[in-house]
C-alpha cells in the first residue's frame, strides 16, 4: 500500500469516527476509543439498524456516496476500516 493511500485512509477513519460520535449522539464514547476493526453493529460498538440510516445519510452528505446494493452494505458497514475503504475507493474513482 502506498504511503499516500495509508495516510488518506487514516484521515478518513478519523473523520468517520468523529462523524459517528456526533451524528449518533454517542456521548459516552470518545472517537479515539473506537477500534477501527471492531464491528459497528451488534457486539462491538453496539449500533442498531436505525443508526445505519444515519450512516447511510452521513456517507451521502459528506462524501456524496450512495449505497444502493444491500449485499455490498453488509461488507461496507462492518467496521470503520471497511467503511473507510469504501469511502476511499469510491471518492478516488469520482475525482
Amino acid at each position: 500500500m502506498s504511503d499516500n493511500k495509508t495516510k488518506e485512509l487514516i484521515e478518513i477513519r478519523e473523520k468517520l469516527k468523529i462523524m459517528l460520535v456526533e451524528n449518533l449522539s454517542l456521548e459516552d464514547i470518545n472517537p479515539d476509543d473506537i477500534k477501527t476493526d471492531e464491528p459497528l453493529f451488534g457486539e462491538g460498538l453496539g449500533l442498531d439498524s436505525l443508526d445505519a440510516v444515519e450512516i447511510v445519510v452521513m456517507l451521502q452528505r459528506n462524501f456524496g456516496l450512495e449505497v444502493k446494493d444491500m449485499n455490498k452494505g453488509k461488507e461496507i458497514f462492518y467496521s470503520i476500516d471497511t467503511l473507510a475503504d469504501y469511502v476511499y475507493e469510491n471518492t478516488k474513482n469520482k475525482s
Partner: peptide
C-alpha cells in the same frame, strides 16, 4: 423486508433519496 441485513434500511434510505 425488515428481516434483511440492518432491517432493510439501506433500501429504504435509497428509496427515500
Amino acid at each position: 423486508s425488515p428481516a434483511g441485513y440492518l432491517g432493510g434500511v439501506v433500501e429504504l434510505t435509497h428509496a427515500l433519496g
